[in-house]
């Protein structure tokens, strides 16, 4: 796992979300090889900033805000 700043992690998450339709936090953490708790925190901040949104389709997912 890399030693990156919160802003860098958030940017990596946004870049990753551009490549998928919808995903879950765990899959983001695996794809980026980052610690799940850090990813959870960053995703929470991105949601508060209005950059991502949550989707419910037989389970909860995240997606880039359209």
């Amino acid at each position: 796992m890399s030693d990156i700043t919160s802003d860098e992690l958030k940017q990596k998450i946004l870049d990753h979300l551009k490549t998928v339709d919808k995903t879950k936090n765990r899959d983001v953490a695996k794809a980026l090889d980052e610690e799940k708790r850090m990813v959870d925190k960053a995703i929470g901040e991105l949601a508060t900033e209005g950059k991502i949104e949550y989707l419910y389709l037989n389970g909860s997912y995240i997606t880039l805000k359209k």
Partner: peptide
Amino acid sequence: KHGGIVGVTGYGG
């Protein structure tokens, strides 16, 4: 039908 994107800013539930 239920689901989709509905919510308030910052919240997923």
